[in-house]
């Protein structure tokens, strides 16, 4: 690509000439003060932040309760297609799905336009912002954005304190993925008179089923 794009060399040459003086752009202020307060109880903070960003969290004690929580979510959904990340836990939960519904699996392709809800795992949960750490490895890129409802399953062991910790997970485990992201609530907009409206283009509803660590 470099060979077919001579502009690259010209831009880099100009950049090098411009920065050759080594003059810092700003005087190094180097404040070492902590920027964010410490988070003593990440789980409590995660639940609080989710309530603020309108993510529904269902806390469960074990896999039985998680399956029951999934059933309740399924019953609350309008009729239509469902999409699951292809994992053993969802294979087991999907056996309870009403036979009238079409079920798609990530191993069979991406969710379709008409999908009503997607079910995926997560790489982590961020207490600082009530965020879900997701990637293209969680059922694909569209799995967390295409449907009106996104249901995420994870355990309390996956809750990390802050964005820095989440980015460390991304740095160690997820750099092979084409997409990595933090999802902090439902899709929203305030472009009309600064009035918050949920469900702009992505999910109107985000549900986390959070199972206690075994």
């Amino acid at each position: 690509m470099a060979g077919s794009n001579p502009q690259r060399e010209r831009i880099l040459a100009r950049v090098r000439a411009a920065t050759a003086d080594n003059v810092p752009t700003t005087a190094p202020a180097a404040s070492k003060a902590p920027i964010f307060a410490e988070i003593p109880d990440p789980l409590e903070r995660f639940l609080r932040e989710c309530a603020a960003n309108l993510t529904e969290v269902i806390c469960t004690r074990d896999s039985m309760e998680s399956a029951a929580a999934c059933d309740r979510v399924l019953q609350s959904l309008p009729p239509g297609e469902l999409f699951f990340q292809d994992t053993p836990v969802f294979r087991s939960w999907a056996s309870h799905v009403d036979s009238a519904r079409t079920v798609r699996w990530s191993s069979g392709g991406p969710p379709s336009e008409s999908t009503q809800a997607t079910f995926t795992l997560a790489h982590g949960f961020v207490a600082q912002t009530g965020s879900i750490l997701s990637s293209s490895l969680c059922g694909g890129r569209g799995a967390s954005i295409v449907a009106p409802c996104h249901v995420v399953f994870g355990t309390t062991e996956q809750v990390v304190a802050d964005i820095d910790a989440a980015l460390q997970i991304a740095n160690h485990d997820l750099l092979s993925a084409s997409y990595v992201g933090l999802i902090s609530g439902s899709s929203r907009t305030a472009d009309i008179e600064k009035i918050l409206v949920q469900g702009a283009h992505g999910p109107l509803r985000v549900v986390v089923i959070l199972q206690a660590a075994s």
Binding site: I163, S178, I183, S184, S187, R188
Partner: peptide
């Protein structure tokens, strides 16, 4: 506190 979708894209599929 953070934008709803803080996304990183690293390449094609």
């Amino acid at each position: 506190p953070i934008t709803t979708y803080s996304t990183l894209i690293g390449g094609p599929r």
